[in-house]
Amino acid sequence: MPSQSFIELKDLQIAVRIGTYGPDDVVPDAHILDLTLTISSDLVMVPRDEMALVFDYDPLIRRIDTLAQAQHYETQERLMTRIVQACAEYPQIEALTISLRKRPVLSGTGTLGVRLIVDGEAMTVLRNSLSVSV
């Protein structure tokens, strides 16, 4: 039976420093991550209640936190790239959608973000390029 399964991480406020701001610039007070991972339905529709049968996302969340706090980033895009590369290290992740947004944007309001969709073919290309560069 064809099916798709997803792990969804929504509205995760991450501790990160992104950007360089002047005295009159709006400095964001939050950076928020959404991450949707496409995984095999075999990792969701399981015959028994055992952690060994599912995708353990906790190590990935810890890795994202480590990447976010590891350095000052000039751009949201660079942090997103590093998170996507970390996801590529998990063969269970077939594809993903990632969104990183900041708030506020102007006059204490608004969010501004970047979204990236990495399909299965792009994930394979990424994995192959990462294995070559190692």
Rank of each mutant, 00 (worst) to 15 (best):
L53N: 08
L35H: 02
R62S: 13
Y57I: 07
P47T: 13
A122L: 07
D42P: 11
Q92N: 09
L12H: 03
E121C: 10
Q76P: 08
S133Q: 12
L67W: 06
Q85L: 02
L12R: 04
L67A: 06
S3A: 14
D58G: 14
A68E: 13
V132S: 10
L106W: 14
S133W: 03
T66E: 15
S107A: 15
S5R: 03
R115E: 14
Y90W: 09
L35N: 01
D49H: 01
L53F: 12
T124F: 10
V114H: 00
R78Q: 05
Q92D: 14
L37C: 05
H72D: 11
D42K: 11
V27E: 04
M45D: 15
V105S: 01
H31D: 12
E121N: 15
R82N: 09
S40E: 09
G120L: 07
Y21A: 00
T75S: 04
I14P: 02
I61A: 10
R101G: 01
I64D: 07
Q76W: 04
T75H: 00
L53Q: 13
F6A: 02
A70Q: 10
S107I: 11
C87P: 07
R103I: 08
Y73K: 00
L130Y: 01
L112F: 13
A86C: 03
Q13W: 01
V16Q: 06
D42S: 14
Q13G: 10
L79M: 00
D29Q: 09
P59F: 03
V125E: 14
M80V: 06
F6V: 07
E94M: 14
L33P: 04
P28I: 03
A122M: 09
M123G: 08
E94L: 15
L126T: 07
T97K: 10
I117V: 15
H72G: 10
